[in-house]
Simulated scan of single mutants.
Amino acid sequence: MVNRLKNKTAIVSGAAQGIGLAIATAFVDEGARVALVDIDGRRGREATSALALRGAEVCFVEADVADSTAVDTMVAQATERLGAPNVLINNAGIVVFRDPLDTTAEDWRHCFAVDLDGVWNCSRAVLPHLLRHGRGDIINIASVHASQIIPKCFPYPVAKHAVIGLTRALAIEYADRDIRVNAISPGYIGTEIVERIFASALDPDKLRAETNALHPVKRIGRPEEIAAAAVFLASDEARFLTAQNIVIDGGRSVVFHQ
């Protein structure tokens, strides 16, 4: 621990597991106060309790990021418990994969309500605090789907492309107020969701080996590798970096044909 985030207060959505929990953990290890936010109350409280046992200054707020009223309440509660936030990590998201013509209005709305509206709801609620601070950071967890199209994944990449547009628009809008807005686009990362996909295959070991082989580095990523990038973006080391999307995929998206 080198306290790169000392005196910072962060809100991390989707923090009960996977990348969100890895980011929350890395932030407290670097000296930040962290409000973990998730729609899964049980897992969120368990994760928060585990961090608190390590001496971290944390709290948990259960909220659905797709509900703007719930988000306003969440930010108010987090502020009351830990102080006004100066870092927001928009990590909460869902996966909706459909054939385009089989995509229902409900499928479309659900995907965008969480993956895009959720990012805006949280950003809108936190931005006034950042403006009062006179500086701050918003970090949106997008996806390689935000820049590359993978067949059979509609409409998820549409929402993630929009997250990059939102990132860039907000970054430029508030750049002269010392508020930085950036995105991180993970590729294959060894989260519980990916592990469940492997486990559901007829031959899990074969699918895992094939997936590893897709990557120039010959493995998939780890949640803590995404968390390390988030720490950097939230630190004072990245003060001149804004409106950017950092792709973390082991080089996979650079490969044209394989």
Rank of each mutant, 00 (worst) to 15 (best):
M1W: 05
K6T: 10
T9A: 06
A22L: 08
A22S: 10
A26P: 04
A32C: 08
V34I: 11
A35M: 09
G41W: 02
G44R: 02
R45L: 04
L53D: 13
G55R: 11
E57V: 12
E57N: 15
V58A: 03
A63C: 15
A63I: 12
A63S: 15
D64L: 06
D64T: 06
V65R: 00
A76F: 05
G83R: 10
R98A: 08
T103I: 03
T104I: 07
D115A: 06
D117P: 01
G118M: 06
V119G: 02
N121K: 07
H133Q: 15
G134I: 13
N140E: 15
A146Y: 01
P155H: 03
Y156R: 03
A162Y: 00
V163C: 03
G165V: 08
L166N: 00
L166T: 05
R168I: 11
A171C: 11
A171E: 13
I172W: 09
Y174C: 07
V181A: 11
N182Y: 02
S185M: 03
I189L: 02
G190Q: 12
T191P: 06
T191M: 05
R196G: 10
F198D: 01
A199L: 05
P204M: 05
E210F: 05
T211E: 04
H215L: 10
K218Q: 15
I220G: 00
G221W: 00
A228Y: 01
A229Y: 06
V231R: 07
F232Q: 07
F232L: 13
S235Y: 08
E237D: 15
R239S: 14
Q244H: 14
I246N: 03
I246Y: 13
I248Q: 04
I248E: 02
G251D: 08
V254W: 06
H257T: 11
